[in-house]
Amino acid sequence: MSEVNKSLVAFLTFLAAILLMFTLQSEYFLTVSNFLQAFKHLSITAIAALGLCFVVAVGKADMSFHFFSCFAAMAMSYFISIGYGPVFSVLASLLLIASLGLLNGILVGRFGLPDMVTTIGTGTAVFGLAYLFSGGRYIYRNFIDSGIMQLNDGKLFGTIPIPVVVMVALYFLSWLLLHKSKYGRNFYAVGNKPLAARFSGIKVARYLAIAFVISALFASIANMVQVSAQGKGEIRAGVTLLMPAWAAVFVGISIFKKPTVYGTFIGAFMISIMQNGFTLLSVPFYYMDFVVALSLIGSIILANFDVITTWINKKRRG
């Protein structure tokens, strides 16, 4: 068995064990309505993680996407509160956030600033800017009448929730871009060896910029869904996206040895299904944080399995 297959089998066994445990513990777990609910929840984590996947693919770290998503959601709520329609509000705030994401991309890509620190800085600044819309208060006005809540409540053909449709569409497009096109190979080339990529004629700075824009955009879409589910513009809603998104991407890497669209989905699925199961068992939220953190740690340990073996061997020798 190849390395990838081994870790895939290990992972699927783990997933099956989790599913079995939840099925035994809660009779509601294995029902259609719960799964539709779980998929709706999954779509938020999964979309945010997908954007991050692009940044990790070009070998950088984004510590700002959750802050950017707060800005986008507040901008959207603000546009709605002053009377614009849902479509305009969503598109306008996505445009705003794309330009802010481009700023990240330019700082890191063109000027070569260190990715983590710069994005922590820009992210904090943008989070501060998000307060400008309402001074940090909830935005209720027009929210329920405007139809924005269809973003979460709406159903395609009367069955499939809109968030799931958005997720599937974004994953399909990203899969085409990252795994089925020459641009996708360029993303990985930039991530593996920027210098070699530059000498092969790839415009490195441009790919870095695009990755950061995609990350900001996708996180914003995820948070818009989240906010429209809550029924009010809340500034801190997006802050919680950071951990699960990173965890999902790294679970994906631990299976497929590189950031991939399908790996990210599997990672998001695992984390989301655990969160759903624990919610059904009415475990307090902070235990879920604990589990998400442990699965992040566990997946990276798995990803470096060769390192573990050398470590164990060393222990044996010593």
Partner: peptide, 18 residues
């Protein structure tokens, strides 16, 4: 308002690194 401080600190940090 305190968020002016948040904005300033964020920009300051990016500026220093730059």
């Amino acid at each position: 308002p305190f968020y002016v401080g948040t904005i300033t600190k964020g920009l300051l940090m990016a500026f220093c690194v730059g």
